[in-house]
């Protein structure tokens, strides 16, 4: 099962302020731990939204609207992500709990999200059931 640990942006990360050396080291150590446990798939940090663009479709079927960054709502933005491959949701939670506070100034927020995967890659029966339900639901919607 794959999970993405998403580190949310803060005013500092949006201003391009690098993490403190202590935090940087703690993050490196954490990534090394993930790698030595054989669960790390990818980890990346993102540039501030000042050089980002946002594409939206305000009109159904209409042309996309493109807005240049920076975007104001820092809390809703993403500063980085770590992708892990684990055996259970609980294992993912345990790893997420071990991630160092990503900002250290009271603003640190991590979101743990599961990645969709083909059902044959997982043997977890509850996952198979939820996947089957979702497929069913999508079929039902496709017909109506």
């Amino acid at each position: 099962m794959r999970f993405m640990m998403i580190v949310k942006a803060t005013a500092d990360s949006e201003n391009g302020k690098p993490p403190s050396p202590e935090l940087f080291e703690a993050m490196m150590k954490y990534n090394e731990e993930l790698a030595k446990a054989g669960v790390l798939l990818a980890a990346d940090g993102l540039h501030p939204s000042s050089n980002a663009i946002r594409i939206s479709y305000p009109e159904p079927g209409g042309k996309p609207k493109v807005i240049d960054g920076p975007f104001t709502e820092a809390k809703e933005l993403i500063a980085g992500y770590t992708l892990i491959e684990v055996k259970s949701r609980e294992e993912a939670i345990e790893w997420a709990m071990r991630m160092p506070d990503p900002h250290g100034n009271g603003e640190g927020r991590i979101e743990l999200r599961q990645v969709f995967e083909a059902p044959e890659l997982t043997e977890d029966p509850s996952m198979l059931v939820s996947h089957a339900k979702l497929t069913e639901e999508m079929k039902r919607r496709g017909r109506s």
Partner: peptide, 20 residues
């Protein structure tokens, strides 16, 4: 034809071995 658990475990052990 495939048994996912064994593949996943082997892959994980391979990744650990490359690290250690």
């Amino acid at each position: 034809w495939t048994r996912p658990l064994l593949c996943q475990e082997a892959l994980r052990l391979g990744r650990i071995l490359a690290e250690v």
